[in-house]
């Protein structure tokens, strides 16, 4: 090869980006260091007191709620994302494909406040859903879907859906039509083909997508803050409350470390699963 990238040049090319990401790495380290600080307000000495103080039923409930809501939201998002990815890859008209792409992608990128407004208008006591149901005479009193787990769940599903759809879309693109036809020619019905061929071949993509969605949901902050109010204390909100009214910095840092550890475990487990399954399907 006449052009091989020399080591010094490769380093020079990478350096600006590494500098740009340094504050992020610094922040990661800082959180870790603060979580084992002996003082609640400044970094001073070493102690695991902050972690010990977290062993309360209140924080335990928050962890459990976070895991539960993230898990349910991930499952539902995946169930919706797979058909959406199929639809997106089957659309022939570029205009239709573009409209669907924008519709799915918008919730990830659009200002979370705007989306929270949307859910409040939809689910609020005088919102679209309640007005419609009342107008149809199905209910007499508004049902409360906001500032409880239902509202948060819907918000999580909506904002994490694009993170599920687009990785699946790229795995679906790698799936050959002939594999499906081969199964069919051997006698498999649509459902049978889905179970025996489509899902196994998509499995690495599905696991990867699900793990990212789960991590995203577990660390959600704006959605539970705006749609759950004080009542749905997912970890993100609980951590914020530790610093904002309580000024318990080391406690917040320790809780943050626990949240990071939880998401990392899920991600590492998923990437291990992807490696195992993709070795199996390497064609």
């Amino acid at each position: 090869m006449s052009i091989s990238l020399s080591r010094p040049r490769a380093l020079a090319f990478s350096l600006p980006a590494i500098i740009a990401i340094l504050p992020f790495l610094g922040a990661c380290f800082y959180i870790f260091r603060f979580s084992i600080s002996a003082d609640k307000g400044v970094i001073d000495g070493y102690s695991i007191q902050a972690y010990v103080d977290l062993m309360t039923p209140f924080f335990g409930r928050s962890v459990w709620l976070t895991l539960k809501l993230s898990f349910v939201a991930t499952i539902i998002a995946m169930i919706l994302a797979v058909p959406l990815a199929f639809l997106l890859t089957s659309l022939k008209s570029p205009l239709a494909r573009r409209c669907l792409t924008v519709t799915i992608l918008l919730p990830l990128i659009l200002n979370l406040l705007v989306q929270a407004y949307g859910w409040i208008l939809l689910l609020g006591p005088s919102g679209v859903l309640n007005s419609t149901l009342k107008g149809l005479g199905i209910i007499e009193r508004p049902i409360f879907l906001l500032f409880n787990e239902t509202g948060v769940l819907l918000g999580l599903i909506q904002t994490s859906l694009p993170l599920a759809v687009f990785p699946i879309v790229s795995s679906v693109r790698g799936l050959s039509q002939e594999h499906l036809e081969a199964a069919s020619s051997l006698g498999a019905s649509h459902w049978r083909t889905f179970v025996d061929v489509t899902v196994p071949l998509l499995r690495p993509g599905l696991v990867g997508a699900a793990s990212i969605v789960f991590a995203f949901n577990a660390s959600a902050f704006a959605i539970p803050l705006l749609l759950g109010g004080r009542r749905v204390q997912m970890m993100g909100v609980a951590i914020r409350d530790m610093i904002s009214p309580l000024f318990n910095w080391s406690g917040a840092a320790a809780a943050g470390m626990i949240l990071i550890t939880l998401t990392l475990i899920v991600l590492v487990f998923a990437s291990w699963l992807v490696r195992v399954t993709s070795e199996e399907v390497r064609g």
Binding site: E178, E181, A182, S184, S185, L186, S189, R192, P200
Partner: peptide
């Protein structure tokens, strides 16, 4: 008749062997 009921054996251009 849908393809999976016909029972015709087919060999595809890409062969389409199931990699898993």
């Amino acid at each position: 008749m849908p393809p999976h009921k016909r029972g015709f054996g087919m060999v595809f251009q890409s062969l389409a062997l199931f990699p898993h």
